[in-house]
C-alpha cells in the first residue's frame, strides 16, 4: 500500500472534472458552496478582490479558518500557500488539507524557485499562462493546473488568453514530429519528457481548470467550451449580490456548458455580479499573473 503516488494525486483532480471549486472564507460560506454543488472549496482569509483592495503582503490563511472550513463540509478542502514557501505548504499538508494551490494570488516567498512538489504527499495545483509554464509546473510535480487569468478582477479576458494559448500549444506539440520536440522544449522552456508525454497522450497529463476572472454562469460555460476541465471561482460568488444563487447557477452552467437556453434561464434575475476591473487600468505591479514564471 502506497500513498502520494502520481496516480493518487492526479486522480484526485480527475474526480473534480466538470465541477466548480469555490473560494470561501468561513464555515458559513463553505456550507453555501457545498449546498450549491461545489466539488471542492478553497479556504482563504480573503477572496482575491479583497486581497487586491487590502494591499500589503498576502500570506497563507490563518490555520483556524482552514480548520473551520474542513470541519464544516464533507467535500475536499484546498488552501493556498505562497509560491516557494516550503513551510506554509508543509503546514497545510500537516493539517490534512486535500489540495494545495501554490498561488500567485498570495505574495511570492521565492522569486526564483517554485516548490518541489514531488516531495509532498498532498497534491498541488498551480497556475499557468502558456505550455512552457504548465510543463515546468508538471515537471516540479503539480498534479493539476489552472489558468492564471487575472484574479480578483471579475474580468475573463486573461483566463481566455491563457487557456487558448495552452491548448493551441498542446495541439502543436501533438501534431509535431517527435524529432522536433527537443527544439520545441528548448523554445518553450519546457521539460522534454513532459512534451513527450503530451504527444503520447494527445493532451496534458493532468487536468487544467479555468481560474482568474470567472464572474458569471456564461463566463464559466465559456471556459468549459474553450477546453477547461472545470472552473475555479474566486471572488465571483461571494462578492456577488446573491452568492447562493450565483453558486448554483455557475455549477449548472459548468455541467451544461453547451445548453444555451438553460444558461439563459439560470442567468435570469441573479442580481448584480461582482464589480469588475478593466485589466489595462491595473498598474503592472498589481498584475498577479506576472508572479511566478
Amino acid at each position: 500500500m502506497v500513498t502520494g503516488t502520481d496516480r493518487v494525486k492526479r486522480g484526485m483532480a480527475e474526480m473534480q472534472k466538470g465541477g466548480v471549486i469555490m473560494d470561501v472564507v468561513n464555515a458559513e460560506q463553505a456550507k453555501i458552496a457545498e449546498e450549491a454543488g461545489a466539488v471542492a472549496v478553497m479556504a482563504l482569509e480573503r477572496v482575491p478582490s479583497d486581497i487586491r483592495a487590502a494591499g500589503g503582503v498576502a500570506r497563507m490563511a490563518d490555520p483556524r479558518i482552514v480548520e473551520e472550513v474542513m470541519n464544516a463540509v464533507s467535500i475536499p478542502v484546498m488552501a493556498k500557500a505562497r509560491i516557494g514557501h516550503i513551510v506554509e505548504a508543509r503546514v497545510l499538508e500537516a493539517m490534512g488539507v486535500d489540495y494545495i494551490d501554490e498561488s500567485e494570488v498570495l505574495t511570492p516567498a521565492d522569486e526564483e524557485f517554485h516548490l518541489n512538489k514531488k516531495e509532498y504527499t498532498v497534491p498541488f495545483v498551480c497556475g499557468c499562462r502558456d505550455l512552457g509554464e504548465a510543463a515546468r509546473r508538471i515537471g516540479e510535480g503539480a498534479s493539476m493546473l489552472r489558468t492564471k487569468g487575472e484574479p480578483g478582477t471579475g474580468n475573463i479576458v486573461e483566463a481566455v488568453r491563457h487557456i487558448r494559448k495552452v491548448n493551441a500549444q498542446v495541439r502543436k506539440v501533438v501534431a509535431m514530429s517527435e524529432d522536433e520536440l527537443m527544439t520545441e522544449a528548448k523554445s518553450l522552456g519546457a521539460p522534454y519528457e513532459i512534451l513527450l508525454e503530451i504527444k503520447r497522450l494527445g493532451r496534458l497529463p493532468v487536468v487544467n481548470f479555468a481560474a482568474g476572472g470567472v464572474a458569471t454562469p456564461a463566463d464559466a460555460a465559456l471556459m468549459m467550451q474553450l477546453g477547461a476541465d472545470g472552473v475555479f471561482v474566486g471572488s465571483g460568488i461571494f462578492k456577488s449580490e446573491n452568492p447562493a444563487l450565483f453558486a448554483k447557477a455557475i455549477v449548472e452552467a459548468t455541467t451544461h456548458y453547451q445548453d444555451y437556453q438553460l444558461i439563459a434561464e439560470l442567468s435570469k434575475n441573479l442580481g448584480t455580479p461582482m464589480k469588475g476591473i478593466e485589466i489595462s487600468s491595473l498598474a503592472p505591479a498589481d498584475r498577479m499573473q506576472e508572479r511566478g514564471w
Binding site: M1, V2, T3, G4, T5, R7, V8, G11, M12, S74, P76, E93, G96, V97, D98, Y99, T121, V122, P123
Partner: peptide
C-alpha cells in the same frame, strides 16, 4: 461510509 479511509493525504494504491 463516505471518506472512510481518511482525507486526500491518506489516499493510496494497493
Amino acid at each position: 461510509e463516505r471518506n472512510s479511509f481518511g482525507r486526500q493525504v491518506d489516499s493510496f494504491e494497493a
